[in-house]
């Protein structure tokens, strides 16, 4: 239907229908106001001083840890389906092969004709963007941030590099590297359910899982410095009104790193499939 067909009585009917739907949606939203049971997330708010300052991270990776694991597979479905549809042509629509394929111009840019600003500042900006993504993922448990955000930032750096430099992109992520990134990330996430399982018999019980629990505990088996810096990863001293508390977020930051690699792989695969195509591009976009 085109917007131009909505003239006269049809337009009026369409507008009235929209108003009715709007009233329904708005009233159903309004009924939610103030009717939300504070339930499980308030429990996590109470636990915050012992786990991680960023409550959302502990909620997503502990209470919904297993759920988030499956859900990160969804983004892979998107990447794989895009690659299948765009690249190998497994869909096999009738007549696609008979017609003339639209061949995109090879993405390349001569750096001699590039503006000075792009020539000298694009690569530093790409590198600093990647660093910013890594800062976000390492600060996941203390501030608003996490694996998915890091993945999106790094993928946008990749897209910037590809758009500016074309096939000679200095940030040269190949197909196999991207698949390896994603597989490594998802595998890391899955395997990090193990410490929680060994300590509490629940898979993906992530809050407070002690990575050193398998070491026989006698004085001096694990040096205290090592345990503080690496043993309880990302231990923090929270300066609150009631005093100083020592919180450890368990393995949540490590899981965030796994998720970051997963998302980098998946979103860069989507970009790769849309920009270069899959079957047409030679192995390694930088050659």
């Amino acid at each position: 239907m085109d917007i131009k067909e909505l003239k006269g009585i049809r337009g009026i009917i369409a507008a009235i229908a929209l108003v009715i739907i709007f009233a329904g949606v708005l009233s159903s939203f309004m009924q939610l106001e103030g009717n939300v049971t504070r339930g499980i997330s308030e429990e996590y708010n109470k636990l915050a001083y012992r786990v991680a300052p960023n409550n959302l991270a502990s909620w997503v990776y502990d209470y919904r840890g297993f759920d988030t694991l499956i859900e990160t597979g969804v983004i892979y479905v998107g990447a794989v389906v895009s690659v299948l549809v765009l690249g190998r042509g497994l869909v096999g629509l009738k007549g696609v092969d008979d017609e003339e394929r639209v061949v995109a111009e090879p993405m390349d840019l001569k750096t001699e004709t590039m503006p000075v600003l792009l020539k000298y500042f694009a690569l530093p900006v790409v590198i600093l963007l990647v660093s910013y993504g890594l800062l976000v993922v390492t600060g996941a448990s203390t501030s608003g941030g996490g694996g998915f955000q890091c993945g999106v930032i790094v993928a946008s750096a990749y897209l910037l590099s590809v758009v500016i430099y074309g096939k000679r992109s200095p940030f040269n992520l190949k197909k196999k590297t991207l698949i390896a990134f994603g597989a490594f990330g998802w595998g890391l996430y899955t395997m990090l359910g193990l410490p929680g399982y060994l300590t509490t018999n629940y898979w993906q019980y992530n809050v407070g899982a002690d990575l050193w629990s398998w070491v026989p505990s006698f004085p001096g088996s694990v040096p205290e410095v090592l345990r503080t810096v690496f043993g309880e990863p990302f231990k923090l001293a929270l300066e609150l009104k009631e005093g100083v508390f020592y919180a450890t977020s368990g393995i949540i930051p490590l899981i965030n790193i796994g998720e970051a690699f997963n998302v980098i792989g998946a979103i860069c695969l989507i970009f790769f499939a849309f920009i270069y195509g899959w079957s047409d591009s030679e192995e390694g976009s930088g050659k």
């Binding site: 690569l123 990647v130 890594l134 800062l135 790094v154 940030f171 503080t228 810096v229 923090l236 930051p253």
Partner: peptide, 26 residues
């Protein structure tokens, strides 16, 4: 005091930086 939440992220960020930096060919 510096160990509290500062050193581990720094080390982890350095390692991740090396892992992703190997993908730069410039």
């Amino acid at each position: 005091p510096a160990a509290m939440g500062e050193i581990t992220p720094t080390v982890v960020a350095f390692l991740l930086g090396i892992a992703i930096g190997t993908q730069f060919v410039a």
